[in-house]
Amino acid sequence: MSYPEKYRYAKSHEWVELDGATATIGITDYAQSSLGDIVFVELPKVGQELTAGSTFGSVESVKAVSDLYSPVTGTVTAINEPLNDAPDTINSDANATWMIKVETKGADDLSSLLSAADYEKFVSEETGH
């Protein structure tokens, strides 16, 4: 599995890419692999306020429903509408499939997130591989 260096990672298996004050958020390759075939994605509405660590939606697969957690605090500015009709896009390329964009309140949000190497180590400790 690959974890792009340009992203920061939450232990709840979301990735975030910061561009100025805009955070683009998706789920990791490990998360989509663990879930299996994704059949439904529930995303927040544009304008919704999020707090780091709070749920912003869910992903439903053939195996389970999993909550999605925001790695940052801010306001949702965009959602990836095509996921409503094609949630399996996440299975095809989790690293390139964003879910939401958030206007953050401050760059210090990312200090608690993991680098790609640290996330990979976290996953291997969690799975025992």
Score class of each variant (00 low, 15 high):
residue 110 L to Q: 10
residue 98 W to H: 05
residue 50 L to A: 08
residue 120 E to Y: 02
residue 65 V to F: 07
residue 2 S to E: 15
residue 12 S to A: 11
residue 50 L to Q: 05
residue 108 D to G: 04
residue 88 D to A: 14
residue 28 T to N: 04
residue 87 P to T: 04
residue 54 S to H: 10
residue 110 L to E: 00
residue 86 A to H: 14
residue 35 L to N: 09
residue 117 A to C: 00
residue 103 E to P: 00
residue 66 S to I: 05
residue 29 D to C: 04
residue 86 A to F: 08
residue 104 T to C: 13
residue 110 L to D: 07
residue 89 T to K: 13
residue 49 E to C: 01
residue 61 S to P: 02
residue 90 I to Y: 10
residue 117 A to M: 10
residue 30 Y to R: 05
residue 103 E to S: 14
residue 96 A to P: 06
residue 118 D to C: 06
residue 33 S to Y: 06
residue 83 L to K: 12
residue 37 D to I: 02
residue 32 Q to W: 11
residue 46 V to N: 03
residue 62 V to Y: 08
residue 9 Y to D: 02
residue 120 E to T: 08
residue 118 D to T: 11
residue 60 E to L: 12
residue 91 N to P: 10
residue 115 S to P: 06
residue 51 T to Q: 14
residue 35 L to C: 11
residue 19 D to K: 15
residue 90 I to K: 06
residue 72 V to Y: 07
residue 65 V to I: 15
residue 112 S to N: 12
residue 30 Y to V: 03
residue 103 E to L: 14
residue 107 A to C: 00
residue 124 S to A: 13
residue 46 V to S: 03
residue 1 M to K: 10
residue 80 N to F: 03
residue 67 D to I: 00
residue 59 V to F: 05
residue 46 V to W: 04
residue 62 V to P: 06
residue 57 G to E: 08
residue 101 K to M: 11
residue 4 P to Y: 08
residue 103 E to V: 01
residue 35 L to P: 00
residue 89 T to W: 06
residue 96 A to E: 15
residue 63 K to M: 10
residue 118 D to H: 05
residue 24 T to R: 15
residue 72 V to W: 10
residue 56 F to V: 09
residue 101 K to P: 01
residue 82 P to L: 06
residue 16 V to K: 02
residue 54 S to V: 02
residue 77 T to N: 00
residue 111 S to F: 06
residue 66 S to K: 03
residue 65 V to D: 01
residue 117 A to E: 15
residue 13 H to W: 03
residue 94 A to R: 11
residue 64 A to C: 01
residue 121 K to Q: 14
residue 113 L to P: 13
residue 70 S to K: 01
residue 40 F to V: 06
residue 22 T to A: 08
residue 56 F to Q: 07
residue 40 F to L: 09
